[in-house]
Amino acid sequence: MSFEYGLYVPGRSIFHRIDPRAKVIWALMVLAFSIYNGNYVMNPIYGGIIYASVLIALISSKPTNFWYRLFGGLSATILFFSLIFWPASAPPGGEPLLTIPVLGWKYTDLALRLALSKAFLVLSPIIAIATIFITSKPGDLFQALVRWKFPYRLAYIPILALRFLPTVIVEIRIITDAQRSRALELEKGSIPSRIRKYVAVFVPLMIRMMKSALELGVALDSKGFGAMKTRTFSRELKWRIYDTLILIMFIALYVITLIVVTRFLAW
């Protein structure tokens, strides 16, 4: 995984072709409906539908295997910990589904609903936001922010961070190799001692990055960054009817399924 374009994975999927502003609105929608469901409705089926819609968005944009592994792992971890810890704060009552033998914890259906809803509340927005970054060029995201009247000097900070992701990865690799050749054994020892060993990678990285930051500042300066109050864009984003349609489709999906699920499914 080289992160050549930051998090962006080039492609020609539906999500790649949507205006980044539409994608941001979609992700905010996912966030809002997830919070509403996770905190008030607590319906795991509805949470699951949002989660599924987000997964479809992710899979349809054909990211690299790295992303499948990352979100697969993340989903499993969050589901696991939710199922273990959330039942502790479940409301009393409900039908017991299972009792954990030694500890004597009762697992009610309410506990299960709570745990699953909370897990989906965390997972869906994260994957939705990641999908924006995977399917939009950093430059287009920057433009979207500027169009929304963000000061462009501030809006460029996250874009620079994305741009320098591949550079930082290369630096880390170089420093790790250099420290290994000086007999630093990063793979050996207990976890605390391994963390301590990573200081030997982290400190040189920070020093290098700070030195480079000055150079970067000068480079931005000599490219006239911040010279004018407003800037133009050579390739302007165009909001098309297609973007509106996709958004309407998602709103319809989330609202209708919310009504259907809460009305007709008791769970």
Partner: peptide, 14 residues
């Protein structure tokens, strides 16, 4: 000015 390390002078992704 153009510096010796081109890496830090390229600020976009294309």
């Amino acid at each position: 000015i153009v510096f010796q390390n081109p890496e830090m002078q390229l600020v976009t992704t294309s």
